[in-house]
Design a protein around this nucleic acid. Sequence first.
DNA 1: AGCTTTGTTTAAGTCAACTTATACAAGATG
DNA 2: CATCTTGTATAAGTTGACTTAAACAAAGCT
Lengths: 192, 192
Amino acid sequence: MAAGPQNVRRMPRAQRREQILDAATRAFARTGYVATGLDGVTAEAGVTSVLLYRHFDSKADLYRAVLDRACARLEATVGSSDFDEGSISALLRAAAEDPDGFRLLFRHAAREPDFRDVVDGIRAMSAEVTRRELAAVIPEGPWLDWAVQYVPTVTLEAVIAWLDAGQPDPDQAADRIALVVHSAIRAANSVD
Amino acid sequence: MAAGPQNVRRMPRAQRREQILDAATRAFARTGYVATGLDGVTAEAGVTSVLLYRHFDSKADLYRAVLDRACARLEATVGSSDFDEGSISALLRAAAEDPDGFRLLFRHAAREPDFRDVVDGIRAMSAEVTRRELAAVIPEGPWLDWAVQYVPTVTLEAVIAWLDAGQPDPDQAADRIALVVHSAIRAANSVD
DNA sequence: AGCTTTGTTTAAGTCAACTTATACAAGATG
DNA sequence: CATCTTGTATAAGTTGACTTAAACAAAGCT
């Protein structure tokens, strides 16, 4: 039989690739790399697995493409803004522009042994900047270490929670988050 | 040949079970459920996989036992302390008593589709308490939702970062973390 | 019209990781 | 000392998920 496909949506190769990447981002954002089967991706994309393999060599290859793109978008939006006030609102803008990619990067990829290296690029840079900033305020010691790890986390989790809450008050959001971040720095410095 | 085992350390069944659970907790704490092979567990425990299967029906069964024990310990230490000042220091005590279990629960299990239910028990209770506390301070709306999700996260991540920093100043730690938590609540409430 | 590209369907191949089976060694215990 | 339990070693079985293969249909361009 092999009933031929009736209403097949054809696309130029590049566009299809993007569409698959979009779908894969959504699919992976739900449950991460291992727990997301290729079925999940193909279902989300509305495409057969065979076609998928005509665009990507393997599941790992696809995942890396997804992460790289999310990473590139993030860097494009956040850019070179150092760790000043503006960087938080830049982060919010980036998250709003690509929520699934954002969640995927920091909720899942950051904890996946085979792929943390992608995020570690950002992470390392961010940690270095953070350390330099904090070293001027917090005395050397374990609480500086604590802050260096904790401050980026607090920031990212605030943004993710903001996404989950429906992205309210984009203008004020940065200020509110800044409050918490500063408080974390103060907490590392001394107990009032 | 089958060179018989020379120096075999024998143990009563119950004790061996605990020893395996300890080892499995350490092993799983590193990379979570899927990414940790049974080899990882057996290597850490110093036993054969056959013996492992004489104590647990399956990998999933073992993992659940690990999580349940960690959960039980946590609840035993934190107890019924409501969301007051004392609960943070109770959390610190619990984390210090079982660091691997703590990290495993909140870093990994919380994000694993098949096992999040274990943590969700805690999570739901904690969220409900949090919401009741916050509802008295924060007006209904998306920022309340934000805080309800964010406050527990901020707390847990602070504790984990504290573990990673080498558990400095156990006495002051609770106060420092409380500062950040209160600041998060204030942030949700209004921008100064 | 003919060739290339995009797509589908169906089926089979591969491989790692979990799981079971079998046989044997040696401590504990009554 | 007979027996039960704890342990090992080695090998085979099973399965789910990823991956390839083969054959065919239709859109689109030259």
